[in-house]
Computed example of a mutant assay.
Amino acid sequence: MAADRQECPVAVVGAGVMGMGIAATVLGSGLPVVLLDIDRAALDRAERTIELQLRHARMMDALPPDRTPGRLVTTTSVRALAGARAVIEAVVEHQATKAEVLTEVAAVVDPSTPLISNTSGIPIDELADALPRPRQLIGTHFMNPAYLIDLVEVIRGPRTDEATVTGLTSLLTDLNRRAVVVRDSHGFVTSRLLHPMLNDAARLVGEAVATAEDVDALMVGCLGHRTGPLRTADLIGLDNLVDSLAALYERTGEQRYRPCEQLLAKVRDGDLGRKSGRGFYDYGEAL
């Protein structure tokens, strides 16, 4: 990597589950990170969690052995992103919120800086409508935990230019990540396949067909799913899953995307999964 790339930080917007995981991925690859959130308490929690994630990644041999972790800076000011090499937006899965954040960022960064929306299903071209330079926007879908999974779904919008694509692919190479580029659409590939399955798994529990443990055991033991759909849902965050499903349902009208009552009830009760300490499973302590 060139020295200027090492010195120029990658900005991550949003100190939630995905923002922290992406920040840990970048830091573990030896690049500096500026992490932005409006909530100072969330940033303080993120600093502690990211250190644990880096430790976990080292234990799993998921970090390049020849690189010193980058420096993390946290901020509540969007102006701190002005010199970023790239900006990865990882806020909640609401189109209006993402568009507002991306517009604010576009006003302070260089016109050549790639704006990368980490979305699980909102079409990139819809988000680009709000931007002064739609060519700057491209999508990624990092999987959780981002610091362990080396494949990234990349979504090129119809107005994304070659310089933005090159900027993102160069960054992913520096992160030791492989990219699969897909066409812009509702939910892309992974969410359109995965999220209805998670919805159905939750529905089976709600209908008392099987327990969460039994659903996951069958999917792991019989069908080769790595962790089971309901542990996966807890890892994603049940509120995030509901938001993503709702966005897909709104855009397609397909009933398989309509969040089931079991998921909605969990979210109403504050049982959001691993990050809250309880979802379909009890984790004891919130992240």
Score class of each variant (00 low, 15 high):
residue 10 V to M: 00
residue 241 L to V: 01
residue 104 E to D: 15
residue 183 R to I: 01
residue 6 Q to T: 11
residue 216 D to F: 10
residue 282 D to A: 14
residue 197 M to I: 14
residue 94 H to V: 10
residue 107 A to I: 09
residue 13 V to S: 02
residue 142 F to W: 14
residue 133 R to S: 13
residue 120 S to F: 01
residue 235 L to Q: 14
residue 3 A to M: 15
residue 174 D to A: 13
residue 275 K to E: 10
residue 142 F to H: 01
residue 47 E to S: 15
residue 284 G to A: 06
residue 65 P to F: 10
residue 195 H to V: 12
residue 242 V to T: 07
residue 218 L to G: 14
residue 136 Q to K: 05
residue 108 V to N: 08
residue 276 S to T: 14
residue 200 D to I: 04
residue 59 M to V: 05
residue 3 A to W: 13
residue 235 L to Y: 07
residue 226 R to L: 13
residue 144 N to E: 04
residue 84 A to C: 10
residue 54 L to I: 08
residue 202 A to V: 07
residue 253 G to K: 12
residue 226 R to D: 07
residue 6 Q to P: 03
residue 161 D to F: 02
residue 184 D to C: 15
residue 51 E to F: 04
residue 144 N to C: 08
residue 184 D to K: 11
residue 58 R to Q: 13
residue 98 K to F: 05
residue 34 V to N: 04
residue 242 V to F: 01
residue 174 D to T: 07
residue 162 E to Q: 15
residue 234 D to A: 11
residue 201 A to V: 03
residue 18 M to H: 04
residue 278 R to C: 06
residue 189 V to S: 11
residue 146 A to C: 12
residue 79 R to M: 04
residue 285 E to D: 10
residue 154 V to H: 02
residue 247 A to V: 09
residue 46 A to T: 06
residue 188 F to N: 04
residue 124 I to R: 04
residue 254 E to D: 15
residue 271 D to C: 13
residue 156 R to F: 00
residue 8 C to P: 00
residue 263 L to P: 01
residue 99 A to L: 07
residue 116 I to P: 03
residue 86 A to K: 01
residue 280 F to V: 06
residue 81 L to A: 05
residue 69 P to R: 06
residue 180 V to N: 01
residue 269 D to A: 15
residue 23 A to K: 02
residue 260 C to S: 11
residue 56 H to Y: 07
residue 258 R to H: 15
residue 41 A to V: 11
residue 93 E to G: 05
residue 262 Q to W: 03
residue 32 P to M: 09
residue 220 V to D: 01
residue 112 S to P: 03
residue 135 R to H: 08
residue 59 M to Y: 00
residue 152 V to T: 05
residue 213 E to G: 11
residue 163 A to F: 03
residue 52 L to I: 00
residue 271 D to S: 12
residue 257 Y to T: 02
residue 49 T to M: 06
residue 72 L to T: 04
residue 166 T to H: 09
residue 178 R to L: 15
residue 168 L to P: 02
residue 223 L to A: 12
residue 231 R to C: 03
residue 254 E to P: 05
residue 69 P to I: 05
residue 254 E to W: 12
residue 215 V to W: 01
residue 170 S to G: 14
residue 212 A to R: 06
residue 252 T to W: 04
residue 71 R to F: 06
residue 285 E to K: 12
residue 204 L to F: 09
residue 5 R to P: 00
residue 142 F to K: 02
residue 6 Q to M: 13
residue 239 D to R: 03
residue 198 L to W: 00
residue 111 P to K: 11
residue 133 R to T: 14
residue 5 R to N: 08
residue 207 E to F: 03
residue 126 E to H: 12
residue 164 T to A: 11
residue 207 E to W: 10
residue 121 G to M: 09
